[in-house]
Design a protein around this nucleic acid. Structure first.
Length: 540
RNA sequence: GCGGGUGUAGCUUAGUGGUAAAGCACCAGCCUUCCAAGCUGGCUAUGAGGGUUCGAUUCCCUUCACCCGCUCCA
């Protein structure tokens, strides 16, 4: 099938705007980086995905690995919580890392990851000639720098390099550990001055002299800047440090904070889950790729509390279950990928994490995150227990034991789900009157059926309107009598509407309507009084 | 945050230091008995701000947004 010149993403973004799925936020003011608004169809689609998740999590959860139905309850917590929440969760410190940019190499580093060491160059009389600040991040970089220095000392014999002792070890041992040449010491004259400090420990004057880890010239590193990813605000009219609060960067913490209340009031016991859907906010450094990475987004998170010894069993269960679910929503197997996060890359508190990734057009042939399933152990409850001084243990009356449950967290991006499903649904077929159309799963489609009088006369509009008034009670429908029937079909194709019901001359005489199938463009006759049950069957 | 690119109507494009053009879409009317038909009419644009100029959409500066690459993604 020949594809148009413009990229898939551009066409999708264009269609989203044209049909009212997604608009740039604040567009009339020039837009706002990292924010998008959902239009009528997009909102409907998002709500449908959200509702499907809620139904499959809370109302009708799957059967667990032990053959019993899983027990999950839903809650809805505040976007703004007590600021201590984020201290306990680690978001405040984790998000507050100072970053440094290099103007020469264009790289960015965590300020405390840059190791700086100072080299004093002296002449033969040991008079100080120059002080240089070298820096490195990887040990290999240190080797390179030192090798360069040795070369330089040899060539230019009037200088002696001197390093101070390494603070942690004596120099000899240090060389050994870092894999430096054994004769390193002997090659460098006199006493070593190797003052190694993190970049953050330097004063501004010194920082300005540092040669960046990947740079040749000194002074190319910016001063450390905070990249706190949490939005903040103030509670009350006095804006000071005491009144400072944060917009939640994830919905999960609200669940942990209410875990005990739910346990005490809902007659649940481990294993059980608490689910929540809602907005989260992260002041992302680089919002990018349409609604993939935005500063305000919606999450569908569920925290599943289990006895510690059952952690891995439930982790495996939920990863498999969530993969299955996204498939059921319409994502093809070829486009979903289970990405097991390795030991080095996982959050420190997590015993296992798998990302469910989707092959978005902008990541293709690679995949991008759609949902993360993390085995968070008892980290969160333990933290909140410590910080709040509240006992959060579960007391098992039967077994006469008490423990902090372990947590499995399937955390899905609702906004990303909308994107993935739109990408998956987007079809281009030049042979159709409407080359672009959305093959959405019927139950997720924003509009389930379009209802059209074939022509705008002979009593057809009246019958169609009556049918519309009846169907709209049970299904999201749209009545359209404008322009030609072909245009109306095409419009519905772009909206992903699975069925179009046409009232024609035949309807007036034999009480039959024509139902057109979006995917095949085939039509079938259905009795007027059977339309509702037809839709219900097809949409279930 | 850095580098590169792009900003003209809802979309896709044209054009110009001197009245901004077209196709499609959209709206209204007519017509129309099944896949963006036709006719008539209509709405709508130089991302924003500043400078140079008699005059700027065009040249310059700043800014904003989007795209690509880096970086970031607890």
């Amino acid at each position: 099938m020949p594809q148009p010149e413009t990229s898939l993403m551009n066409r999708l973004v264009s269609l989203c705007k044209r049909r009212g799925f997604v608009y740039p936020a604040s567009e009339i003011y020039g837009g706002l980086n990292g924010f998008w608004d959902f239009g009528p169809l997009g909102t409907q689609l998002k709500n449908n995905i959200r509702d499907a998740w809620w139904r499959d999590m809370v109302d009708c959860p799957p059967i667990g690995p032990d053959g019993q139905p899983v027990s999950i309850v839903g809650i809805d917590t505040s976007i703004i919580q007590h600021p201590k929440t984020w201290e306990a969760s680690g978001h405040l410190s984790g998000f507050a890392d100072l970053m440094v940019d290099c103007k020469e190499s264009k790289k960015r580093y965590r300020a405390d990851h840059i190791n700086v060491f100072e080299v004093t160059m002296r002449d033969e009389d040991k008079e100080e000639k120059a002080r240089l600040f070298f820096s490195y991040v990887e040990p290999e970089q240190l080797n390179e720098i030192v090798a360069g220095l040795i070369k330089r000392t040899k060539k230019d014999s009037q200088y002696y390099l001197s390093f101070e002792r390494h603070p942690r070890n004596d120099s000899e041992k240090y060389c050994r550990e870092e894999g430096l040449a054994n004769n390193f010491l002997s090659k460098i004259q006199s006493d070593f001055i190797l003052i190694e400090r993190p970049f953050t420990a330097l004063n501004a004057e010194e920082q300005a002299k540092v040669i960046g880890p990947d740079a040749k010239n000194a002074g190319t590193l910016t001063e450390p800047r905070s990249f706190n990813l949490m939005f903040n605000s103030y509670v009350g009219v006095f804006q000071n440090e005491e009144s400072k609060v944060y917009l939640r960067p994830e919905t999960a913490q609200g669940i942990f904070l209410q875990y005990k209340n739910v346990l005490d009031t809902s007659r649940v016991k481990p294993p059980f889950g608490i689910a929540q859907v809602g907005k989260s906010f992260r002041n992302e450094v680089t919002p990018r790729n349409f609604i993939f990475r935005t500063r305000e987004f919606e999450q569908m998170e569920m925290e599943f509390f289990v006895p510690p010894e059952d952690g891995m069993k439930w982790y495996e269960f939920w990863v498999a279950e969530r993969l299955r679910w996204w498939g059921e929503m319409g994502l093809s197997k070829a486009n979903i990928f289970r990405h097991e996060i390795g030991d080095g890359d996982r959050a420190f508190y997590s015993a296992a994490t798998a990302d469910i990734e989707y092959k978005y057009p902008f990541t293709d042939p690679n995949f991008g995150e759609l949902e993360g399933v993390a085995y968070r152990t008892d980290y969160d409850l333990k933290q909140h227990q410590t910080f709040s001084k509240t006992n959060l243990e579960y007391i098992d009356q039967e077994a006469k034991t008490r423990y902090l449950p372990h947590v499995i967290e399937p955390a899905a991006g609702l906004t990303r789900g909308v994107l993935a499903l739109l990408c998956e649904a987007y079809q281009y077929d030049e042979s159709r009157a409407s080359p672009e159309w959305l093959k959405l799963k019927p139950s997720l489609a924003p509009i389930k059926a379009g209802i059209f009088p074939l022509v705008n006369k002979d009593g057809m509009p009246e019958v169609a309107e009556k049918l519309f008034m009846d169907l709209r009670k049970t299904h999201t429908c749209q009545y359209d009598a404008k322009q030609s029937i072909g245009k109306r079909y095409a419009r519905m194709d772009e909206a992903g509407t699975p069925f179009c019901i046409t009232i024609d001359g035949d309807t007036l005489t034999s009480q039959n309507v024509t139902i057109r199938n979006r995917d095949t463009a085939q039509q079938e006759k259905v009795a007027l009084d059977q339309v509702k049950s037809y839709l219900s069957t097809k949409l279930s």
